[in-house]
């Protein structure tokens, strides 16, 4: 699945877009866990997960073909 990375999360993940190998359907909460396993610096960081351009809660299901976006809060002005 394609992962789009926004804001300063790109500093942690190291790229603004990448493809994550995923076997089959999973929940948003398991994606969050998997991202944390891959990038431990995400620990304690606040961000939203959008699935196909819709903000998704932890129980939402994700399929391998979905486009995922990771969106942290911005405050600068």
């Amino acid at each position: 699945m394609k992962i789009l990375v926004f804001g300063q999360l790109t500093d942690i993940i190291g790229q603004h877009e990448y493809v994550m190998e995923s076997i089959d359907e999973m929940k948003v909460s398991s994606l969050r866990q998997q991202l944390l396993n891959n990038y431990p610096a995400l620990l304690g960081k606040k961000y939203l997960i959008a699935v196909n351009k819709k903000m998704a809660d932890d129980n939402a299901k994700i399929e391998a073909t979905d486009e995922i976006a990771l969106l942290p809060p911005f405050s600068g002005g």
């Binding site: 926004f6 804001g7 300063q8 942290p72 809060p73 911005f74 405050s75 600068g76 002005g77």
Partner: peptide, 8 residues
Amino acid sequence: GAVSQYQG
């Protein structure tokens, strides 16, 4: 509206 580095 809000900005962070190169994004808004």
